[in-house]
């Protein structure tokens, strides 16, 4: 049956796996940890599938073969109380199966968890917040949110990405099924996981540990960039925040209302850290951790009433006037 599951999901999504925004699927791995797990999954499905066929077959046979022909027959069948030989056999066979499964599993556990870190690996610190993701690239000096950019890796010269995971508030869990299994983000603790994606594109995921009201909209987007794309992205992120004088009115709103208490725009007075860094806000394709597409209309709606996209978001509705909203949207739209 496991194989059935597998063929079914493969058939449904085989064509989609190369497209960005493909439906998520653990059977379309694009990175070593995910594909190690995928191959182990096939093995486990084969063994459990065989067990299912044998035992369910015996069960169905017994139910069919030994059914009473009439509801109440006078005579009783021969009474059998047990058999030590048979019971020993069906104790030993499962024990042997467990040994085989365990050895296969242990190999993958150690291969993933204790893999040596390649020298060219990129470090990223991931910090979970209610209900968004903060990414910090210490070696590159980049801080961004919600949309993770990582370089493509080749099997021959891996440029893996090592994620150091922690949380600013409650437990969260980082899960992008096509890249790796999930790892929890726990306050007061640093966990580590790694990915070495081998196909460029966009991979989706979301928080997998219940973290409060808006757990459902703590979405994840991972962009796997070719080396050129990644270099260009890094260069963009290094530029200081835009200070276009034509949107000075909006900037003033940003800095005089409470926005700057929570958000940072590099090169300005805004250095808040409670919410996402907005220095290169427009370089992201979504806002509110993936709850809406990042365009002027949605930004305006989001500023006016965060509950519209995200009922329990910690961003307050700031009660801005229409004019202030227009100015603020104009300002934010220049933060490329």
């Amino acid at each position: 049956m496991g194989i059935g599951f597998l063929l079914w999901t493969r058939a449904c999504f085989a064509a989609d796996t190369v497209r960005p925004s493909s439906p998520i699927n653990i059977f379309a791995p694009a990175s070593t940890p995910a594909s190690e797990i995928y191959h182990l999954t096939l093995f486990v499905f084969a063994i459990t599938g065989a067990m299912f066929v044998v035992v369910a077959g015996l069960l169905c046979f017994a139910v069919f073969r030994f059914r009473a022909r009439k509801l109440y027959e006078a005579s009783e069948p021969p009474q059998i109380y047990g058999s030590n030989q048979i019971e020993l056999a069906w104790t030993v066979i499962p024990v042997l199966t467990v040994v085989v499964l365990f050895l296969a599993t242990a190999r993958v556990i150690f291969a993933i968890q204790d893999a040596p870190k390649p020298p060219a690996a990129l470090d990223v610190t991931v910090i979970g917040h209610q209900f968004w993701w903060e990414y910090r690239y210490p070696s590159l000096g980049i801080v961004t949110a919600n949309e993770l950019h990582v370089p493509l890796s080749h099997l021959n010269h891996p440029t893996s990405t090592y994620l150091r995971l922690t949380s600013a508030d409650v437990d969260h869990s980082f899960w992008v099924p096509q890249l790796a299994g999930k790892t929890d983000l726990i306050p007061n603790r640093v966990n580590e996981m790694w990915i070495d994606p081998q196909r460029p594109g966009l991979y989706l995921g979301q928080c997998a540990q219940f973290c409060g009201v808006e757990h459902a909209k703590m979405l994840l987007r991972v962009y796997v960039d070719t080396p050129e794309q990644f270099t260009a992205w890094v260069k963009d992120q290094h530029r200081p925040g835009n200070q276009d004088p034509s949107v000075a009115a909006g900037r003033r709103v940003f800095e005089t209302q409470a926005c700057m208490n929570c958000h940072t725009v590099t090169g300005t007075a805004a250095t808040g850290r409670f919410g996402p860094d907005l220095t290169h806000f427009m370089s992201r394709s979504t806002l509110a951790a993936g709850a809406a597409v990042n365009n002027a209309a949605n930004i305006r709606e989001w500023l006016k009433s965060p509950d519209h996209f995200k009922q329990g978001s910690l961003m307050p509705a700031m009660q801005l006037s229409d004019q202030q909203l227009d100015e603020l949207v104009a300002y934010l739209s220049t933060l490329h």
């Binding site: 797990i37 369910a56 790796a180 299994g181 790892t183």
Partner: peptide, 27 residues
């Protein structure tokens, strides 16, 4: 019960395989 418990046991074996659980946990 027998039929479903058999299947539940087998999916339990799948989840006990910790790398597979890294994918399927909380799903």
């Amino acid at each position: 019960f027998l039929f479903q418990f058999l299947l539940a046991g087998l999916t339990g074996i799948m989840l006990s395989v910790s790398p597979l659980d890294w994918q399927l946990h909380n799903s």
